[in-house]
Design a protein around this nucleic acid. Structure first.
Lengths: 260, 260
DNA sequence: TTTTTGCCGATTGTAGACAATCTGATCGCT
DNA sequence: AGCGATCAGATTGTCTACAATCGGCAAAAA
């Protein structure tokens, strides 16, 4: 009896990776890195040639990306990288806030000493990035920090959906280039989060996470509006940020003109 | 200039629905209705013949279903309807609870009179089903009730993910056949939810929703355990129900033997 | 000049063919 | 009889070919 069923890495690789998987991963990478920008058209023949595969696997990968919300397939017209409209970004932030509140609660209840030490280290690193004024590095650490927190909450479904949302959100305008002129605020909020978790108070930790995400929402949305990005339809700016998740009258759902 | 661009229904249909879409919808229907039970193998050639299409569109539909979590594609072995293990069902309930708490909050803040009247009507209908001891009808009304609440919260992303979770959850063992021996409890909780929403107190409404989902989790899990469904690995039953979303030690993630 | 109509290239939708892989059954050996 | 190797059938992975649709350009009409 094998103590552990650990197939050779190469075996594992061949068993799991079909062309569809590889193409899917590669396309996702290209999209998330901005190499394929929102709105870009993905022509089957061109991409197939570039990746060295036929159209079949490529189309299957497209379907995966479509369900993941990264591309939009328009019948007989082509596949396009999605452009996330502001309203949707706001919705994602609100949803994330609720999810992260759950994360904070669970962590306050269950986190171990070693794990606490680990995330403290991440906050330290972020504060160092702030001192160095290294916005890019800070951005990466920030992503990693939140991802790790969600992961530590121990709900894999939650993790899965959280990551899906983050991916979609990265398609929101030029969010990636977020200039770090508010890094100190964000960093100090992180410190507060860890402190609340360490205290073991679920309510406090949940609230700290929730508030942080909502603040992050405000910062991101305002930053994007300020960039002079012509708004879809000249919406009431402040109200957008205030209460995103509110009831709508029946017929103003599919009004945005961006590819959604 | 056309006052309203209202394409003929048939036109609209042809523009949006490709074989992939139709097949996807049909397969989803068959899976959710139980016509294709969890664990069932979906053979490409057979299904293609049955549906009258070639393998191409069918495979693309498979990819959509895979990303939606309804089937599992095993390379070189086939496509199988997923079987949701208990642990995952628990995770989904916990996640749903957090989302529904958000729903309750938003509804307490924003619901209109007409909408309140609408959901009151649904609760009335459910209480009638309880009196008639009509478990099936109650089940449908219950689904509709919660779906409508989420919809009314006005966050389309939230709605989308909620529905995805519900679909996956319907694959959990024989959840559909939930005998209604606890309908009265569930029904009275619904009444409380509506009451809390009507009061306009976000905290109360959020808590009512959260508690209801968690109670529903307990009822469902216990009901399924009781059914003599041999447990995957003889887990600590009570602890499963208690705190699902907790931290796990490193290597007990992919341990279930069901197709996941 | 402006608008409309018909055509053509380009691209996507679908189908079918071929190659690779897996499953399980039969045969042979110990 | 038990165990393992080999082979055949079935099924999936990938590619190529054909049909349908779209978008734009040019020519003709107003």
């Amino acid at each position: 009896m094998n103590a552990e069923i650990v197939p050779h890495p190469t075996i594992e690789l061949l068993q799991t990776s079909s062309l569809v998987n590889v193409v899917h991963g590669e396309l996702e990478r290209m999209i998330l890195s901005g190499q394929l920008a929102p709105g870009a058209k993905l022509t089957e023949l061109t991409l197939a040639a570039k990746l060295g595969v036929s159209r079949g696997p490529l189309r299957e990968a497209f379907r995966l990306l479509e369900e993941a919300g990264l591309v939009k397939i328009a019948k007989n017209r082509g596949v396009f990288v999605r452009d996330i409209p502001v309203e949707e970004a706001v919705e994602i932030f609100d949803l994330r806030a609720a999810m992260d509140e759950l994360v904070g609660r669970r962590l306050a209840e269950n986190i171990s000493g070693a794990q606490l030490k680990e995330i403290r280290g991440m906050v330290d690193a972020m504060e160092k990035a702030v001192k160095d004024n290294d916005a890019y590095h800070y951005h990466l650490l920030n992503l990693k920090f939140h991802d790790r927190l969600v992961e530590l909450a121990g709900n894999s479904k939650l993790t899965e959906i959280y990551r899906k949302l983050i991916k979609e959100l990265s398609l929101f305008r030029r969010l990636n280039l977020e200039d770090g002129w508010l890094m100190p605020v964000s960093a100090s909020e992180h410190r507060s989060i860890v402190k609340a978790i360490a205290t073991g108070d679920p309510d406090a930790a949940g609230k700290a996470m929730f508030d942080h995400v909502m603040d992050s929402k405000t910062r991101t949305i305002e930053h994007n509006l300020r960039r002079g990005t012509a708004l879809p339809d000249a919406l009431p700016v402040a109200s957008l940020i205030r209460s995103s998740t509110n009831t709508r009258t029946k017929s103003d759902a599919g009004k945005s003109k961006t590819i959604a």
